[in-house]
Amino acid sequence: MITQDERLEGLKFNTSILEDRLGKLEYERDMARDQCYEREGLLELQTRSMKDNLIFGGLGETGLEENTELVVKDFIKSELDITKEIVFQVVHRLGKRADGKPRSIVAKFVNRKDRDRVLNAASTKLASKRQFSINEHFPPEINERRRVLYPVFKEAKRNNRQVRLKADKLFIDGQQYHPPPPQHHPDSNALLQEDPHQPQYPTLAPTRMRPDLRDQFRHTGVSG
């Protein structure tokens, strides 16, 4: 017959196992959260480094000896009606396109005001010239987030809401919009729900008690 002391010792043993498992899960959670913060920090640095850049699309290539900076300057004057002399830090073509169209051009402006003037002019001057495009430059991961947000942005604008898409953040009527979590992770670990805007994680598998301990302490109310 099992004594009360033996029951207590068994409960202590099982509790220590659960506490050890919980400690490991909390450690893994903290590591994942730190890695997320680190990745977001690197993305922010990348985004800042590209803040003076614009990507020009649809500008025809003129050959191996092409002066890419001159191509951009001529385009700005002829298509955007901006005659002010603009200075660039660097201008270059991106990699070859699979569709055979002209490679896009990345231009890094010396003056932020010049960059903004060109971007603002593009919204009106190129509205009827779909073969050309001028866009802000972002890391691929930020572009993917913007792709998800853009339909919401268009819908809000269609409904005459005040909208602003800044990098990977969408603001509607002054409030930041947060997209719903991915559908393939419908549940989240309760330990990670302190901040609803933290990344979502799959539900962790429940801890199972050893069969011998389950049989031994079934009448104590502990189950696995």
Score class of each variant (00 low, 15 high):
L192A: 15
F75I: 00
D212A: 02
Y177F: 12
G174Q: 14
K169C: 13
K51S: 15
T124P: 03
E26Q: 05
P139V: 01
E40Y: 10
T124A: 10
F171H: 15
H178A: 05
T203F: 14
R7L: 10
N143M: 03
L22H: 07
P182H: 05
E19S: 04
S128Y: 05
Y37G: 01
E19K: 05
E141T: 11
V90R: 13
K157S: 15
S188A: 15
K84R: 09
G174C: 15
A32H: 04
P151D: 00
K108H: 11
E144M: 04
K73G: 09
L165A: 06
F109D: 13
A127F: 12
R147P: 01
M31Y: 03
E194A: 13
K84E: 09
M1T: 03
R103W: 12
N14T: 00
T83G: 10
T47P: 06
T3D: 05
G23V: 02
S104R: 15
E136W: 03
D52H: 10
H197F: 14
G63D: 03
K166R: 10
V152I: 08
F75M: 04
L213V: 03
P139S: 06
L45I: 08
N189M: 12
N135D: 03
V163C: 13
P196T: 04
Q46D: 11
K51F: 12
R93A: 06
G60F: 08
S128I: 04
E61F: 05
H184D: 15
E6C: 00
L126F: 02
F153D: 03
R158W: 11
R115M: 11
R112T: 15
N189H: 14
D187L: 10
Q4V: 00
K125E: 09
S128F: 07
F13V: 00
K51W: 10
H92L: 07
L149W: 02
Y150Q: 05
A167V: 05
V110Q: 15
V110I: 14
R158I: 13
E66C: 01
S104D: 14
A127V: 12
D114V: 14
S128A: 08
D187A: 09
L213S: 02
L192R: 15
A190Q: 08
F88Y: 13
I17N: 02
T220V: 00
Q183K: 07
A127D: 08
L64S: 12
D20H: 05
H197R: 08
I172S: 11
K73M: 13
R93H: 05
R93M: 08
D114H: 12
E85M: 08
L59R: 06
C36V: 09
Q89H: 12
